[in-house]
Design a protein around this nucleic acid. Structure first.
Length: 411
RNA sequence: GCGCCGGUCGAAUAGCGGCUAUUUCAGGAGACUGUAAAUCUCCCGCCUUCGGGCAUCGUUGGUUCGAGUCCAACCCGGCGCA
């Protein structure tokens, strides 16, 4: 993997560049489409490519459970089995330490939202109380994470070495060190402990990866796999800087920025990290984000992103437009005989009316998921691409201002 | 006309003497940030200062401390016999 910076955003940390992988180049900043189980839900790889996506990100834990990394490898690797010829990433399973652990059976999100007063804060917390009969499915120890399968209840242990071994078998171009994604509800003491543990896991991940690569690259057709280390530290400036310094000084090919954030503070938090990380290596902001997040993260030095929001929200009936998000089930769209957005060039908007797509969604026709996912991914992929172009043409500030003024998030 | 069933919030249902009338669907709104997710939450008779208040199980009476539930008559629907 090779990273090149083409242009920097003057006076800021942001940059446009390219990541060259054995399966092609990613022009950055870029949105990486999430295909957790080696499939972008509801879409064929051709559809994913046609809507403008450059790369996809799959998940180690999910592919380990099913079909199993041995089968992925025997089938020719991630690219081959899913018929995606472009660059790929795998996440390490570290996010599942959170989603199946502290967050399981609750309404806890890794992004904490601003609360207007303490009363609402308490209400929110009470809503977050774990549902009955839903004990956590992930338990963290120094050596790794014990997962209880959400499929059959079976126990599976992930150590940093195990995650790296599985990821090497799956064979994505870019993989991540095994980390612990913490909950925003955890206190600073815990965030510090988890961060330090993630640092130890990073060193172990790196060591195991080097061993495996030396071995694997002896075979003539082997393609090198890049390893990104993951920065943690929650919403605390001193922890984030410490983590970025520690992870940034290790011999990784690039970096992931993970964990929980205060939603309104995301640009600042990312700048703490990216000021510390070496400039010449790519930085991937894990699990972000919404349209407004990209501007803040990119101007503060992030190069790539992945997020389930566009596809999940598409399936759940929320669509992106330049004026904000809309709910496709709203009564007012039943007779909206025009595209979701008049000037959108996606396949869905070129061929269907919102009224028709809304009808498909309302009647739970499967095509609804495909058409809405195409629109949302096209919107997000092209938004990030537009930000890239604005950096290259020195119009970032104007583009940011005009987009955010129009994007009110109100119907 | 006689007999037997049955009428519960848009639909379908549960409840068969006990306080707050159940559930599913339909309908309305919202949430979702490295996917446990084609998922979840709330509303769905009227009023409300969001604490609650007042109604309501075909109609009208009755029995009872208490009735959707038991009794009577009537109205409607289905089936059977004439």
């Amino acid at each position: 993997m090779k990273f090149t910076i083409e242009k920097k955003l003057s006076g800021k940390l942001g940059r446009a560049g390219k990541i060259e992988t054995p399966h092609g180049t990613i022009n950055t900043p870029a949105f990486i489409v999430v295909g957790t189980k080696a499939t972008v839900k509801a879409l064929t790889p051709d559809q994913v490519k046609d809507l403008g996506a450059q790369a996809v990100l799959a998940n180690t834990y999910h592919l380990y459970l099913e079909p199993g990394e041995k089968i992925v490898k025997a089938g020719g690797g991630l690219h081959k089995i899913m018929n995606w010829s472009g660059p790929t990433f795998t996440d390490s399973g570290g996010f599942q330490a959170f989603s199946l652990g502290a967050a399981f059976g609750t309404t806890i999100s890794k992004l904490s939202k601003p609360q207007s007063n303490g009363f609402e804060e308490r209400e929110k917390m009470s809503e977050s109380v774990r549902s009955e009969g839903m004990p956590p499915l992930a338990k963290i120890t120094e050596d790794g994470v014990m997962f209880k399968s959400y499929r059959d209840g079976g126990e599976h242990f992930f150590s940093p070495e195990k995650s790296i071994e599985i990821q090497n078998s799956i064979g994505a171009d870019i993989i991540f060190a095994f980390d612990e994604c913490t909950s925003p509800t955890a206190d600073k003491q815990y965030q510090k402990e988890a961060m330090e543990r993630t640092h130890r896991w990073a060193a172990r991940s790196l060591a195991r990866h080097k061993e495996l690569q030396i071995e694997s690259l002896k075979s003539p057709n082997a393609k090198p796999i890049a390893l990104f280390g993951v920065v943690q530290g929650g919403r605390f400036e001193d922890l984030r800087k410490e983590s970025a310094h520690t992870i940034g000084s290790m011999d990784f090919d690039g970096f992931g920025i993970g964990g929980s954030f205060d939603k309104q503070d995301i640009g600042t938090a990312v700048s703490w990290v990216n000021e510390e990380l070496p400039e010449g290596k790519p930085r991937h902001l894990l699990g972000i984000g919404e349209p407004e997040d990209f501007f803040l993260a990119i101007e503060n030095g992030c190069d790539t992103f992945d997020c389930v929001a566009p596809t999940r929200q598409a399936r759940n009936g929320t669509l992106y437009t330049k004026a904000g998000k809309i709910h496709i089930d709203n009564t007012k769209y039943r007779e909206f005989f025009a595209p979701i957005e008049a000037d959108c060039t996606c396949y869905t908007c070129r061929n269907y009316t919102l009224a028709y797509v809304a009808y498909l969604a309302r009647t739970k026709e499967l095509l609804a998921h495909t058409l809405t996912s195409i629109h949302n991914l096209h919107f997000i992929v092209h938004l990030v691409e537009s930000i890239r172009q604005s950096i290259l043409s020195d119009t970032f500030e104007e583009f940011k201002k005009s987009f955010l003024e129009g994007y009110t998030k109100v119907d």
